[in-house]
Design a protein around this nucleic acid. Structure first.
Length: 686
DNA sequence: GAGCACTGC
């Protein structure tokens, strides 16, 4: 067996940080190599080669002696797969306790869990398991290492607010600052006060470590001081673990560039001319610029002989058909140089298996993001990065990190979540990054108008508790609950599933779109278009999909996104189960679309708009706030312009566009939300 | 007549 630090033995060598109290590990802590069992020798060898391995003793020491340990590590250090195993080996999973490791993404949860199961030589779902939405691969009383999304852990807190079965919770990728990670961190800090024996490990990129440490550093109250005497430090420890990335040489332009597309193209050609073989990855802002740059390079290659025939230029953005996206993964032909011109889809989502990527960055992103992009060039060997802005700009004008999601999003879902967990004082909640009080008050108002919160800002019964049970935007949840009284729950659950998969912009639209197939896809859409609006159109598509036997050919023929429809089926199935659990009777209204529209109104009444009289360009005004809005051209009601409509989301580009629009009768509003519309006397509902 | 990215419950 390998040797671990154990309480009571001599403590590892650690150095105090000059900033006071924060511990930094000094490095060089190679644990005395010891023989492991022959059976797992090769896996054990692989594990020992990971950079994190030599910090094993230090990590276990810090976790033993500190309530919170912050691990700073680059990708490739092995922290995600190894630390949970170290903890288990050191006994943190004994006596029926569990070790949890959270990830922001489902895919990562599955990948890490199966890797760890493999390393430990156990079957996935036994000792090592994972839980993500729709999938629980754990076994009670057997699973001791549990990987899960942070969203799932938040849901678990609704049943067990103190997370009593866990001895250690590792929050991985905390620097990504997703909403659920931020809520989780805020709640875990609270849990720690009630459960001093609980240990937290926060894994974060360098740039965020100090902020995390400040967040978890807390005032020492009397009871906490007693714990300190018991040997648990409340001051968070910080440990840096090096990664395995390669060096990336950074170049800046000397003067700001005028036309960055042109500058990117020139840089590509210059690299091609002067640099040794190696592929190039270019980041531009959007589809138009990318298509433009691809064209410019093609033109240049045609007119100037010196660049041909060496360049293979490939665009990459989400709107591109899947087959064309996949071209970027194909190996570069011998003697050629691949140039991928991409949106920031290539920043994190994809791992490009290409050799020696050169990389250029444009647009005012954060320093953290610039670093991430540069890192793409150093995955397999040293690389170079050309930034099309001056170093002075990088140093003095770019923000350190992107604004945390929680400070730029709608807080409605998040507040209801906290309410359901019994956090009454929302305004006083201790966030790693506080949203503005205005945003929180706005969200509280929406929840009040939905009848989810009462006059004392407490969850109403049953509506408030029912809405909290449904893992969707509260407006959608309210619509589902209302469908019960209208006898159209089957239809509304379908609508809810469609709305919830196409969160923002075009990501997972049920329609296939893109260049070149515009006309065909528009015509296909007309076959399903309903005069009532997009929601009813969705029902027509869903019906057709079911009648085809859920066929992918049918989807292909009708320009419907098969992948999105599978997702709709999955979400729909979960929603049906939840609906039944909270007492909603599953019932179809057959062809009565008026009740469907009434149910939509019950959830989305706050998004009502009226067509401006004498408007020639389809201008609407919102009833709440008189904001100028237009129907999005992707809607079936575009240019139809009914007088009264409700939208389910707003996209702002050059104008405010309403996506997913349905026509309504204004008299339904008083029925759906009398308290809301009684106050709107300046907007007569006729 | 419009689309930078898309996670999670």
């Amino acid at each position: 067996m390998a040797q671990f630090w154990k309480p009571g033995t001599e403590k590892p060598r650690l150095v105090d940080d000059e900033e006071g109290g924060v511990l930094f590990f000094s490095g060089g802590f190679s644990s005395s190599s010891s023989s492991s069992g022959y059976g797992y020798a090769s896996i054990e060898k692989q594990r020992q080669r990971l950079p994190v391995y030599k910090y094993r003793t230090a990590i276990l020491y810090l976790v033993e002696t500190h309530a919170t340990t912050i691990i700073v590590g680059e990708t490739g250090s092995g922290k995600t797969t190894q630390i949970p195993q170290f903890l288990k080996e050191a006994g943190w999973a004994s006596g029926g306790r569990l070790i949890a490791c959270t990830q922001p993404r489902r895919l990562a949860v599955q990948a890490v869990a199966s890797r760890v199961a493999e390393e430990m030589g156990v079957k996935l779902g036994e000792e090592v398991g994972y839980t993500i939405r729709f999938e629980d691969v754990t076994k009670p009383d057997v699973t001791v290492l549990k990987f899960l999304t942070d969203g799932v852990l938040l849901r678990e807190m609704m049943d067990d607010p103190l997370l009593t079965k866990y001895s250690v919770i590792m929050v991985d990728e905390a620097h990504e600052r997703s909403i659920s990670t931020d809520i989780l961190l805020g709640l875990l800090k609270k849990v720690q006060k009630r459960r001093p024996e609980l240990r937290l490990i926060i894994s974060s990129a360098t740039i965020e470590a100090k902020a995390m440490s400040d967040f978890f550093r807390k005032r020492k109250k009397r009871r906490e001081l007693e714990n300190e005497e018991n040997g648990i430090q409340l001051e968070p420890a910080i440990l840096s673990v090096e990664g395995r990335g390669f060096n990336v040489q950074i170049n800046y332009v000397e003067e700001p560039v005028q036309d960055y597309v042109q500058a990117a193209v020139s840089t590509v050609l210059l690299i091609h001319e002067r640099e040794p073989p190696g592929d190039i990855l270019v980041f531009l802002t959007g589809q138009d610029d990318i298509d433009g740059a691809v064209q410019l390079i093609a033109d240049e290659v045609q007119t100037s002989k010196k660049h041909s025939p060496g360049l293979v230029v490939l665009p990459l953005y989400s709107g591109l058909p899947r087959a064309e996206q996949e071209l970027v993964f194909s190996p570069t032909p011998r003697g050629k140089r691949k140039v991928i011109i991409s949106t920031n889809i290539a920043e994190t989502s994809l791992t490009l298996e290409i050799t020696d990527v050169e990389n250029l960055v444009v647009a005012p992103i954060s320093k953290a993001s610039a670093k991430q992009r540069a890192g793409r060039a150093g995955r397999v060997r040293p690389g170079k990065c050309y930034r099309l802005y001056a170093e002075e700009y990088f140093l003095n004008h770019m923000s350190n990190e992107a604004i945390p999601e929680i400070q730029r999003s709608n807080l409605v879902s998040c507040i209801i979540h906290l309410k359901a967990l019994g956090i009454d004082n929302i305004l006083g909640f201790d966030w790693p990054a506080s949203p503005s009080p205005e945003a929180m008050i706005r969200a509280l108002e929406v929840l009040y108008s939905l009848g989810v919160l009462d006059d004392d800002a407490k969850l109403t019964s049953p509506t408030g508790f029912q809405v909290a049970e449904i893992p969707l935007d509260p407006m959608i949840s309210k619509m589902i609950i209302a469908s019960n009284q209208f006898g159209c729950s089957e239809e509304i659950i379908t609508v809810a599933a469609v709305l919830s998969i196409q969160v923002k912009l075009f990501a997972l639209s049920i329609w296939i779109s893109g260049r070149g197939i515009q006309k065909e896809s528009d015509e296909a859409k007309l076959r399903f278009a309903a005069a009532e609006g997009d929601h009813v159109t969705f029902l027509n598509v869903y019906k057709g999909f079911l009648q085809s036997g859920k066929s992918s050919q049918w989807c292909h023929k009708n320009y419907v996104n098969y992948h999105a429809m599978r997702k709709v089926l999955e979400v729909r199935e979960q929603l049906r189960r939840i609906a039944q659990r909270i007492g909603i009777v599953l019932k179809s209204c057959e062809s009565d679309m008026q009740v469907v529209r009434k149910a939509v109104t019950a959830g989305f009444f706050a998004n009502t708009c009226r067509l401006e009289e004498y408007s020639h360009n389809g201008m609407y005004k919102t009833i709440r706030g008189s904001q100028e809005v237009y129907i999005h051209p992707s809607s079936v009601l575009f240019r139809v312009n009914p007088k009264w409509i409700i939208y389910s989301s707003l996209v702002s580009t050059d104008r405010q566009y309403m996506r997913n629009v349905i026509s309504i009768d204004p008299s339904w509003l008083l029925e759906a939300a009398p308290h809301f519309y009684q106050l709107q006397q300046s907007n007569p509902l006729h």
